[in-house]
């Protein structure tokens, strides 16, 4: 029980500093000093202290959406196992609920954007719906590959039976990690799909959806953004690290994986430009294509595919 709470607490802590690490890396590469790593936390605390400004056009959906969004992402945190410790919510097919909870949050954020009656936010809503539809299959294909490989269907069992099988598991894990990293970028609206630093509404995806949120609601949305990154980081950790390692070491590695992941995102964001809007669908479909390669690799490894 205490261990489970500890894991959740660690993920929550990581989520608070994740965006800060990205920004710090960005700043260092750009030759700037950069804001403190916990600046995002300070910003959110200040937001929590502020009153809300609502648009007159909006109604109950707009007020409900940030709560549902944050609650659904927070519930997703409780699906993440660590090492040989089960998550709070762990049952067969839990990853389906995990993915659909994320979708629930997205659904309400899209509706909240539509509720403002703004052309800009409609643009963001529309792009979010389209891009997420294109990105969604990749997650399921990767999980299908893992479950084909391990013959199990819950996060805990998938990760626990991944590595003891054979050394070939690292091949699968590598592909899966790569796909999850790309997905994390797409899900969190980072480069190259979307640029969180852009100042032109016409080129935004996520930022333009939350133009009218303020105060408490905005803080929730930003905290949820950090959580999403931390969740993906934890999934990547689970794929990469064998469960046999001691627990304390696992925790340390988790912290390391998350920091490195954030730094990689930061480095990448400093070095490359955003995709053209029209290129995004291709980029997103390519993730699923990569995931299919993972699936085919598992078919070959498990000897289901033979020429006879």
């Amino acid at each position: 029980m205490i261990i489970k709470a500890g894991i959740i607490l660690l993920i929550l802590l990581i989520s608070l500093m994740f965006p800060g690490v990205i920004n710090k890396t960005n700043a260092k590469i750009g030759g700037r000093k950069g804001a403190p790593v916990l600046q995002v936390l300070y910003d959110n605390i200040r937001l929590l202290k502020k009153g809300n400004v609502y648009s007159r056009t909006t109604g109950f959906v707009f007020r409900l959406a940030p709560l549902v969004y944050f609650a659904s992402i927070l519930s997703c945190v409780l699906f993440i196992p660590l090492g040989n410790h089960k998550a709070v919510f762990s049952f067969d097919g839990d990853f389906v609920l995990f993915a659909y909870l994320m979708a629930l949050g997205r659904f309400f954020m899209i509706l909240a954007a539509m509720d403002t009656g703004s052309g800009f936010e409609g643009m963001g809503a529309n792009r979010e719906a389209y891009y997420s539809m294109l990105a969604e299959p990749a997650f399921f294909i990767v999980i299908a590959s893992l479950s084909l490989f391990t013959d199990h269907t819950s996060f805990y069992d998938l990760f626990n039976h991944l590595h003891p099988q054979s050394n070939l598991s690292y091949l699968i894990a590598f592909l899966a990690i790569y796909v999850f990293s790309l997905l994390a970028l797409a899900e969190n609206s980072r480069l190259p799909v979307d640029d969180p630093k852009t100042h032109l509404e016409l080129t935004m995806v996520h930022e333009v959806m939350i133009l009218d949120h303020s105060g408490f609601d905005l803080a929730l949305i930003q905290l949820a953004g950090g959580l999403k990154f931390a969740i993906y980081g934890a999934l990547i950790h689970n794929l990469a690290v064998p469960v046999s390692l001691p627990f304390a070491l696992q925790l340390a590695i988790l912290l390391g994986v998350e920091v490195i992941f954030a730094m990689i995102v930061g480095v990448m964001e400093s070095l490359r430009a955003r995709n053209k809007m029209m290129k995004n669908p291709q980029w997103l479909i390519a993730i699923s294509a990569l995931a299919v390669i993972a699936f085919l690799a598992v078919l070959i490894i498990t000897r289901k595919f033979s020429l006879v």
Partner: peptide, 12 residues
């Protein structure tokens, strides 16, 4: 919200 001011305004 009870402690803070909640304002209504037009959409951005």
């Amino acid at each position: 919200e009870k402690k803070r001011t909640v304002t209504m305004d037009s959409t951005w």
